[in-house]
């Protein structure tokens, strides 16, 4: 009892250890206390009751874990989306640059006009080629016609030569006849 009173005095001075405070708590939580010490009981009962107070939200842990996982997941999705967009944008820019560079380097001038579109250029080239081929064919046919005329002429020339020789032979025969 005296020991308790001494401890109680130390307790109010803030000098008790946790072990000593445990002795006091156990003492004051019993039912039959001397009258002069009863007044302190409420204090220790109050602390004892406060120790048992709990969070009323029974699903706190589950909700917290979901919340944190969602944040983490959400964060991951955001990062993936961001980096994917960046990668896609880089590819588009790179391809665009290559295409532009290609367009800039491959072109042709037709009638003083610059043409970058390869299809259009091919079409125009084919058109010109056809024109050239057409003209060439025309020229060939002309040449053939000339050749044909040439042939005819040479045949005519042979005939005319043949006629000349016959005339000469006839002349010679006539001369010989006359001499006889």
């Amino acid at each position: 009892m005296n020991n308790i009173k001494e401890l109680l005095q130390k307790y109010f001075e803030g000098d008790t250890s946790l072990a000593e405070e445990s002795i006091l708590k156990n003492y004051f939580l019993q039912e039959n206390l001397p009258d002069d010490l009863k007044q302190y009981q409420t204090m220790f009962v109050c602390f004892e009751q406060a120790q048992t107070e709990t969070l009323s939200d029974a699903n706190f842990e589950e909700r917290f874990k979901k919340q944190v996982s969602f944040k983490k997941h959400h964060g991951l999705v955001f990062h993936i989306a961001m980096w994917s967009s960046a990668a896609a944008a880089s590819i588009v820019i790179a391809l665009g640059s290559i295409y532009y560079a290609e367009r800039q380097s491959n072109y042709m001038i037709v009638n003083g006009k610059r043409i970058n579109d390869p299809e259009k250029a091919m079409m125009m080239a084919a058109e010109k080629l056809n024109l050239v081929t057409g003209k060439f064919n025309n020229s060939v046919s002309h040449v053939q016609q000339i050749g044909h005329v040439g042939k005819q002429l040479s045949v005519m020339e042979i005939f005319s030569k043949h006629d000349a020789v016959s005339d000469t032979v006839n002349d010679n025969n006539a001369n010989k006849h006359n001499e006889n």
């Binding site: 406060a50 120790q51 107070e53 709990t54 969070l55 706190f60 842990e61 917290f64 874990k65 944190v68």
Partner: peptide, 21 residues
């Protein structure tokens, strides 16, 4: 999260009491 669950989540009632105090 697993370690947090073992070490920190069990303090929830103590933290609640501190907040209430």
């Amino acid at each position: 999260l697993q370690q947090f669950e073992i070490k920190i989540l069990p303090l929830k009632n103590k933290i609640y009491r501190l907040a209430k105090a």
